[in-house]
Design a protein around this nucleic acid. Structure first.
Lengths: 256, 256
DNA sequence: ATCTGTGAATGCCTTCACAGCA
DNA sequence: TGCTGTGAAGGCATTCACAGAT
């Protein structure tokens, strides 16, 4: 696939470099690889094997190689991957070569924290606007940005060319906010409100529900507890606090 | 499967009711069904069809039926599911019949927000302790809880019988905190720090990385943009802002 | 007539194992 | 020799479509 190009940058000649329709599972892991690669770069590594990168990212190496091969990959047999080159590649594929502007709606408890989260700025995003429906919150300054009223969304979207909307409102307000975001042309939404959003096709929604994460962990706690009730059953699993560290793979066993 | 029991409560007679080894994909959706069911209960529904519940939860009805059938399910053909009964069932399976105690480590920006997040309390969890390594933060009161020093973790864990640890520290501190949690017997960890954790087998880790979510959305933005560059290619997909609302399924298309 | 529960089919993802390049 | 890239196999998850209960 994409036979043997090692250009300094991802093929910026003719029309768009063909973003090759990656499997969703792969897309979801690329950010993790990217983070691991940045760590490696900072600690002076210029090259890394699939095994090494897989460990740093918490996956197994076969999966990693297959994922990277999807991008038309840039490894050297017998050597490994060029860290800098791979960072460029992945950032390009993820569309991080331009810093995307994010509008955050809902500046309550969670919204405050998100507004101040460094991780966004350091990893390709710029929080360009804070919005809220509560007049009592409008005007407040958070982290150098002034909270504006949600009715100003159309103006804000135009001025800052917002690419992504983040919803951190109560569930009751979320659908309305989503509608407003869609109306001003936003086609990607990250939803922290615990509810399902209806959006037109062509608009992507991802949802993060903090309580759901805990509930999934709770299920596994429950299972572990009910298993220890039958000391004989269950096979070799689950010796509480055994000696060695499990491979990082254990994260994955629980899935995303 | 589990032929025809409709007990008032999930079979509390002999030894543990056999938690039937559910597929991870199903487990991850149960919390969503539960939330939808609570909504339905509040709006006075006593019964709901698979179609109706599937809509409320943002999945398709075949998937929902298969998921519920895994629990030995409690539906009536020709009628639907009993909302109250199903809530009991799912809460039992998820281990939410006991309110689990959570220790939150790291009371920075994000930790503050999590400490104040209502969704935990209202959905089966109790934040029992706030911990931080920074002496400057110890003693601060957040939402009725006083921040204690991380060195007190062993005492805290024993007193409050902590079931789940939440890590909201910087990435540099996360592994050490995880080790400390594991050392005091915590077997479930929710990690907000952008790094991979190594833990012994038998310990479950789930990771939430806010920047990763945005990066995945960024990929899809990038793809959408590069597709519109070729108006002819791509087939019928992606008419920007078309008329009808997409089925709630669009969330899923992006996958979790 | 309606709606659940489920075999069967399909498709996606992961893992294995090795061919082939450096 | 060492490590990537990839066919092939196997395992999960989703979807279809209908038998069967009420």
């Amino acid at each position: 696939m994409s036979q043997h190009r090692h250009p300094g940058a991802p093929d910026r000649a003719g029309a768009v470099p063909a973003l090759p329709d990656l499997p969703e599972a792969t897309v979801a892991r690329l950010p993790e690889y990217l983070r691991a690669l940045h760590n490696l770069a900072e600690t002076g590594h210029e090259t890394i094997s699939s095994e090494g990168l897989a460990n740093a990212a918490g996956v197994n190496s076969a999966k990693l190689r297959k994922d990277l091969s999807q991008l038309g990959s840039y490894g050297t047999r017998g050597v490994g991957y060029d860290v800098g080159l791979l960072i460029e590649q992945i950032e390009y594929v993820l569309g991080l070569t331009q810093r995307r502007a994010v509008a955050l709606v809902g500046v309550g408890n969670l919204g405050h924290a998100l507004a101040g989260y460094d991780g966004f700025a350091s990893r390709g995003f710029r929080i360009a606007a804070l919005l809220d429906a509560d007049p009592g919150r409008v005007g407040e300054e958070i982290n150098g940005l002034v909270v504006r009223h949600i009715d100003e969304l159309p103006r804000v979207a135009a001025e800052d060319s917002i690419a992504i909307g983040v919803i951190a409102t109560p569930a009751t307000a979320a659908q309305q906010v989503a509608d407003q975001l869609v109306a001003v042309g936003v086609t990607s939404i990250l939803n922290f409100a615990p509810c399902v959003l209806s959006v037109p096709s062509g608009v992507d929604v991802r949802k993060v529900d903090l309580a759901v994460e805990l509930q999934i962990l709770s299920f596994h706690e429950h299972r572990k507890a009910s298993q220890t009730a039958f000391p004989t059953a269950g096979g070799s699993a689950l010796t509480a606090l055994p000696g060695g560290l499990a491979v990082t793979e254990s994260q994955e066993a629980i899935g995303t």
